[in-house]
Structures are given as C-alpha cells and as structure tokens.
Simulated assay, not measured.
Amino acid sequence: MKKETIKAGQITIDFLLEAADTNGAAAMFEFTVPAGAKTPLPHYHEHYDETIYGLSGVLTFTVDGKITDINPGETCFIPRGVVHGFDNLKQNDAKGLTIITPALLGPVFFREVADIVNQPGTPDLKKLGMVMAKHGLVPVVPKR
C-alpha cells in the first residue's frame, strides 16, 4: 500500500515502507524518472546499502564507474560507500523499486530535497548538500 508520494523536481517517489514499518530493517519506495529528467549528482551512502529493481522502462545506473542498464525484472545492488548515480537516457519514463537496508533513509529526506529543488530558479546547492549530509549521502562532483 502506498504511504506517501513526494515529487522532487521531475522525479516522483512513492514510499511503501519506512523504518517504523520494519523495525528499522528496511525502507522501500518506487521512483519514477521521466525521459531526460534531471537526476541527482553522483553520491554514496555512508551507512546503508541500496538495491534497485527495474519495474518499467530502462534506468541507466553508473555504479563505481561501471554503466549498467536496469530493465524491468533486473536488479542492481549498491553497497554503502560506492559512488553511484542514475539517468533515464531512453525515450520512455522509467520506474524502479528501491530497498534501503537498514532503513536510514526515509520520506523526510525526500521532502527536504523537494523543498529545495521545487523552488523557482536554480536550486541552492549548498542547502542541498547540507540536507544530503544530514541524511548520510555524500555528493561526488564528476571529474571533467
């Protein structure tokens, strides 16, 4: 059962489970990425792992420098400390299911990000970085 829907920029997050539902063991949400959507900077998580399961469309993940397309029914495991990011490079919307273990990331993070990125104009990257740090995400600026 869907608990909460959060729209952060062009990405929609539908929370299914959070820490209170699983005694802190796991959080789970679906996320929809429109074709060509702006996506978060590459980052890593300090204290939790992330597993992605493709539901529809194709999500292109870069994990530790390796590019992987995740099609429906395919999975990708991202251990804590590993730099990763994602894009939707195809012509159709893509949807994935994310499981966070343990449940150290929840709806509060996405609400705080939405408050920043949903404002008119360019998002305040300093505020965004502070929200990420508060929730255990470390942004990694790509090398040019």
Results as ranks from 00 to 15, higher is better:
I67H: 13
L104S: 00
G24K: 06
A133M: 13
K95G: 05
N71R: 15
G85E: 01
I13T: 12
A103Q: 01
H47Y: 09
I70Y: 02
V83T: 15
G36F: 01
P142F: 11
N92S: 12
G9S: 10
K3M: 02
T98L: 12
E4V: 01
K3A: 00
A37S: 07
E30Y: 13
L59H: 04
T62L: 08
K126E: 15
K95A: 10
R111W: 05
A20T: 06
I13P: 00
Q91A: 15
L105I: 08
P102W: 04
V33Q: 00
D69H: 04
G129P: 09
M28D: 02
P79S: 08
P40F: 00
G36H: 01
K143L: 14
A25V: 08
V33W: 00
G85H: 01
F110K: 06
V58T: 11
N92G: 06
L89F: 12
T51W: 03
N118D: 12
D69T: 03
I67A: 15
I116P: 07
P42S: 14
I100C: 04
P123I: 02
F109E: 07
K38I: 04
C76P: 07
M130D: 14
V82E: 13
M130L: 12
G54F: 08
G54W: 08
K143P: 03
R80H: 06
G81F: 03
L104K: 00
N71S: 12
A94P: 00
H47K: 14
G9P: 06
K127C: 05
P72S: 09
K2C: 10
P40Y: 01
P102K: 05
E74S: 12
A25P: 00
A27M: 08
H45W: 09
D14A: 07
K38T: 08
V140N: 15
T51I: 07
G81Q: 07
L125A: 11
P79G: 05
D115F: 07
G85N: 01
V141A: 14
D115Y: 09
G106A: 01
F109T: 02
D49N: 13
V141P: 03
D21P: 03
G121D: 01
L137F: 13
P102F: 03
N71M: 12
D93H: 10
L41A: 14
M130E: 15
V117T: 09
L16C: 10
V82F: 11
A37L: 03
D21R: 08
D49R: 11
G96I: 07
L89Q: 15
P42G: 13
T5I: 13
G129M: 13
H135V: 06
G24W: 03
I6T: 06
T60A: 11
L55P: 02
P120A: 05
L17T: 00
K134S: 11
